[in-house]
């Protein structure tokens, strides 16, 4: 299946050539979890992240589906 992975803030530094906010197309076997996609992209497993799949809060063990949009942020805040 195809997943759109979108990295924000400081995260593009882990994926050479990626740019904040620009989707990276990732091919993955069916039922791949968020965590597996992140590990394969080179994002440290122990990093505290904010994960959104199609705009909804997600966890690392959530299974992804075809054409899901996985947006990943480090811990950020403002206001």
């Amino acid at each position: 299946m195809t997943i759109d992975l979108i990295l924000y803030a400081s995260l593009p530094k882990f994926v050479p050539g990626s740019v904040a906010g620009i989707p990276i197309t990732v091919q993955a076997p069916d039922q791949t979890t968020v965590g597996v996609v992140l590990s394969q992209a080179g994002i440290p497993d122990d990093m505290r992240l904010i994960l959104l799949v199609n705009g909804l809060s997600a966890t690392r063990d959530q299974e992804l589906r075809e054409n899901d949009r996985l947006a990943v942020f480090p811990t950020i805040a403002g206001g």
Binding site: A9, G55, S57, P74, I76, G78, G79
Partner: peptide, 19 residues
């Protein structure tokens, strides 16, 4: 780190993603 690097406007993308 976060506030210093991007300022509060780092929120634009996440609020947008979250709809």
């Amino acid at each position: 780190e976060g506030l210093a690097a991007y300022g509060t406007n780092v929120l634009t993308n996440i609020l947008n993603e979250a709809g």
